[in-house]
Amino acid sequence: MVSTEYDEDEVTRLKIALARIARLVDRQVSGDGMTRTQLSVLGTVARLGPLRLGALAETEGLNPTMLSRVVGKLEADGLLERSTDPGDRRAARVRVTEAGEQLHRRLRGERTRLFTGALARLPAPEAQALRSALPAIESLARESAQQSARPGPVTAGHGRP
């Protein structure tokens, strides 16, 4: 069995490092003034293709009201298009527009260049350590997303009860 006890300093260092990276990327790749949530929704729809709003809300971990506002803003900016789901006329779907796809590709390219440059400046052992850690980082991201989607309060340091 894997121990669930983690050194608080290491957890704090990981949290700070990930947050710092996210802030730096957000500052350097602005997304034309879009919020992080808007960028994430646009990226999800661009990657996964047309989605029902319910599936998008679940993927993004957003409540339907918040998602509706975000989609409305992206739609008003001509980046997403909302339509009735042909399989269920009561449900709505969203798809990325050509302008949204172009913006997504440009921002993804800028972020990729930013990370590629930073990785190239690392000493080889540290770069290899990051490659080796990718599966664990991806698992952490998945678990964090699943945890945030579960109902109930988060308890300090212990996830949800």
Results as ranks from 00 to 15, higher is better:
23 R>E: 04
74 L>M: 03
35 T>S: 15
21 I>M: 09
52 R>S: 10
30 S>A: 09
26 D>Y: 05
53 L>A: 10
92 A>S: 08
94 V>M: 00
46 A>E: 05
76 A>C: 10
32 D>W: 04
53 L>Y: 05
57 A>T: 08
38 Q>I: 03
16 I>D: 06
91 A>R: 14
58 E>Y: 04
66 M>V: 12
46 A>S: 13
71 V>M: 08
92 A>K: 11
22 A>M: 00
32 D>H: 07
29 V>E: 00
83 S>D: 12
67 L>M: 14
93 R>D: 12
58 E>H: 14
90 R>W: 15
79 L>H: 04
12 T>S: 15
37 T>S: 03
10 E>S: 07
50 P>L: 01
67 L>F: 07
38 Q>S: 14
58 E>G: 11
29 V>C: 02
74 L>A: 02
89 R>L: 15
46 A>D: 08
12 T>W: 13
61 G>A: 11
81 E>V: 08
71 V>H: 07
91 A>S: 05
32 D>N: 07
66 M>K: 08
67 L>C: 09
23 R>M: 11
9 D>H: 13
46 A>Y: 07
91 A>M: 02
86 P>A: 11
19 A>Y: 11
49 G>L: 15
42 L>E: 00
55 A>N: 11
63 N>T: 01
18 L>R: 09
30 S>E: 04
72 G>H: 00
70 V>D: 00
98 E>T: 14
30 S>R: 14
31 G>M: 02
89 R>P: 14
66 M>Q: 06
62 L>F: 06
21 I>R: 09
13 R>Y: 04
49 G>I: 09
9 D>P: 05
26 D>M: 12
84 T>C: 01
25 V>K: 06
16 I>W: 13
37 T>C: 08
14 L>A: 13
86 P>K: 09
48 L>F: 14
93 R>A: 06
